Simulated scan of single mutants.
Amino acid sequence: MTHVTERTTVDSLQPLDDELREIRRHLHSNPELSFKEHATSDFVAERLTEWGYEVHRGLGGTGVVATMQVGTGAKRLGLRADMDALPIHETSGLPWASKHEGCMHACGHDGHMTMLLGAAKHLSITKSFSGKLTLVFQPAEETGYDSGAKAMVEEGLFDQFPCDMVFAFHNHPGAPQGQLLSREGAFMAAGDRVLLKVLGVGGHAARPHQTVDTVVVSAAIVMALQSIVSRNVAANDTAVVTVGRLRVVDALNVIPAEGEIGISVRSFDPGVRALLQQRIEKICRSTADAYDATVEIDS
């Protein structure tokens, strides 16, 4: 007997509106950082179990995977959302604002989880598909490098839960409500990080000539990095090189011997990605050398 599927529209989800709003506000109020999504993981797992999914815990530490087989179809579809928040203090003042100091769902992962939970509940009710559905709730997307996705895959995600196709998504602030955005080719960038330790010679602020000032060196490196996208990446390609961390000593009368720079790097094309790594490393080393400093690079 052929399994009959029904067309799903936005109106089909209207009965879940109040429940999903409550879920989203709960998740927003209780954010957790990367690989620490313990209460979030529990919340997600409890809902999926309640709706009839077979729930698996522990991949990637706090990851949740849920499966449901409907009909006799052989196709295997995966849907994925991320769970972690950012180390940002929320100042919105909303009733459902973060209850955790210095932690906020500022990137919208509370919304991502709510959307996937909404799809999960709708499909558990209608069972309007034939085949195997796999839902993946991934920890630690925000870490970029050594992320929860990498951990889950290395721990056998697709060996245990093979999929013919996996769909992931991300909110896009500024896009009209009710629209889905897509395009041919890569849609989400590769995210890399580069950590630098700048090594100089510390000393007293009154005797800078006896030092190799890592504040000056670090500032020069930050400014030199700004030329990579504008002068090394072709105009029809795209990339982002953002310095998100710059740390030196706090004392005003001390020239520090060390500085720290953290760089977020994003690209779509493997060739551009390789170029970015090459240029970042060369600029950092040569700029430091020009000031008689050195750098240690972890990329």
Rank of each mutant, 00 (worst) to 15 (best):
residue 91 T to D: 09
residue 116 L to S: 11
residue 102 G to V: 10
residue 120 A to P: 12
residue 136 V to T: 06
residue 104 M to Y: 07
residue 163 C to V: 15
residue 140 A to F: 12
residue 91 T to G: 08
residue 170 H to P: 06
residue 119 A to H: 08
residue 96 W to Q: 07
residue 115 M to V: 14
residue 172 H to R: 09
residue 172 H to K: 08
residue 93 G to H: 05
residue 161 F to Q: 00
residue 173 P to R: 08
residue 101 E to K: 15
residue 110 D to Y: 15
residue 131 G to V: 04
residue 94 L to D: 06
residue 130 S to Q: 09
residue 96 W to Y: 11
residue 159 D to A: 15
residue 127 K to L: 11
residue 107 C to F: 07
residue 137 F to Q: 00
residue 112 H to F: 02
residue 162 P to Y: 13
residue 98 S to D: 04
residue 150 K to F: 13
residue 125 I to V: 15
residue 128 S to D: 10
residue 92 S to V: 04
residue 129 F to W: 05
residue 164 D to E: 13
residue 145 Y to Q: 11
residue 156 G to R: 10
residue 92 S to Q: 03
residue 108 G to Y: 04
residue 135 L to I: 03
residue 119 A to V: 11
residue 116 L to T: 09
residue 129 F to M: 02
residue 151 A to H: 09
residue 93 G to L: 02
residue 110 D to Q: 08
residue 139 P to G: 09
residue 101 E to C: 10
residue 156 G to K: 09
residue 129 F to R: 02
residue 92 S to K: 04
residue 120 A to E: 08
residue 121 K to V: 05
residue 146 D to A: 14
residue 164 D to V: 12
residue 108 G to F: 04
residue 144 G to F: 08
residue 142 E to G: 08
residue 94 L to T: 07
residue 93 G to F: 03
residue 164 D to W: 15
residue 134 T to Y: 00
residue 166 V to Y: 01
residue 158 F to Q: 04
residue 134 T to W: 00
residue 135 L to F: 01
residue 153 V to Y: 08
residue 104 M to V: 08
residue 147 S to M: 06
residue 127 K to V: 03
residue 154 E to D: 12
residue 91 T to N: 12
residue 171 N to T: 12
residue 139 P to M: 07
residue 110 D to F: 09
residue 114 T to P: 02
